[in-house]
Nucleic acid binder design. Structure first.
Lengths: 154, 154
DNA sequence: CTTGAAAGAGACACGTC
DNA sequence: GACGTGTCTCTTTCAAG
């Protein structure tokens, strides 16, 4: 499965604005509507397109505090890891969780209302998970850049 | 400006799947199509809805390496910071950039093809920016959780 | 891949209550 | 806020080149 320049153009356009109509999209990339629609459909079925979604301004929802937390699990074994991830997946404040290389085990992205809520979250929800031994917090001062557009080449 | 439960329901649904039709959306949240459409429009105009976008599977695009990089700028003054952010905004490999509290200044999320490309990126694109004195890399082993759904309450 | 046609669905602006 | 109506555009499928 290899993507040609039309597929890439479709993906780029949809990443910028998924509400574009198939008609406009086909004009934009220089294909007929039928060909364009078939490709978009195909990209969805192949799993290249995972989801159409909406980016919401967290600030305007009253969620003012964004934080990244690095977590060390100990002991780091399959049991504690599985249980940790199970809990993480249940917590709506955790938007992202990555297992990473380096001297920390996990990196979490957190969104909450304010700092007091953040403090409660860390103590009550995070530190209370068995195996979570140390956490290191970085509060986001400002989002300088944020895009979902994966480069489609290089 | 305060959002009621209908607005929240709209936002939750659109975050899950922005390709839902207004008809289905109105059924889902229990409003008429006209009321539902007016609210969605309003949320867009208010800036609560920032963008409709598409989540693409980076792996299937051949972008196998995701990394988080923490950057220390020195000297950290307005000039180096501005220039740094200017360069960052030009680099398509940098999907996200946050200024953060703690002993690092910035946190970047990077997506590239493979590790050799990553090495080149750090040396040629990142370290070559004046003021970038130290970087600390965490390669993503696995994405354990990833959602864009901002909690609409709490 | 393209073009063209045809049918169905949804968007959207109006009124009215 | 709900509902109905009408128009218009887009989607979607299907031919045939």
């Amino acid at each position: 499965m290899t993507l040609d320049r039309y597929d890439r153009a479709i993906l780029n356009a949809l990443q910028k604005d998924s509400s574009i109509s198939n008609l406009d999209l086909s004009k934009l990339i220089g294909l007929s509507t039928s060909a364009c629609l078939a490709r978009t459909k195909n990209l969805k079925e192949l799993g290249v397109i995972k989801q159409f979604t909406t980016i919401v301004d967290e600030r305007r929802l009253g969620m003012e505090t964004i934080a990244f937390i690095m977590v060390i699990l100990s002991p780091l074994n399959r049991e504690t890891a599985n249980f940790f991830l199970e809990q993480i997946n249940k917590l709506p404040q955790v938007l992202e969780c990555y297992s990473i290389t380096g001297n920390k085990d996990y990196l979490l992205k957190i969104v909450v209302k304010d700092m007091p809520t953040y403090k409660d979250f860390v103590i009550d929800s995070l530190m209370s998970i068995p195996g979570v031994s140390r956490v290191e917090t970085s509060i986001v001062i400002n989002t300088e850049k944020r895009t979902l557009s994966i480069p489609t080449e290089d």
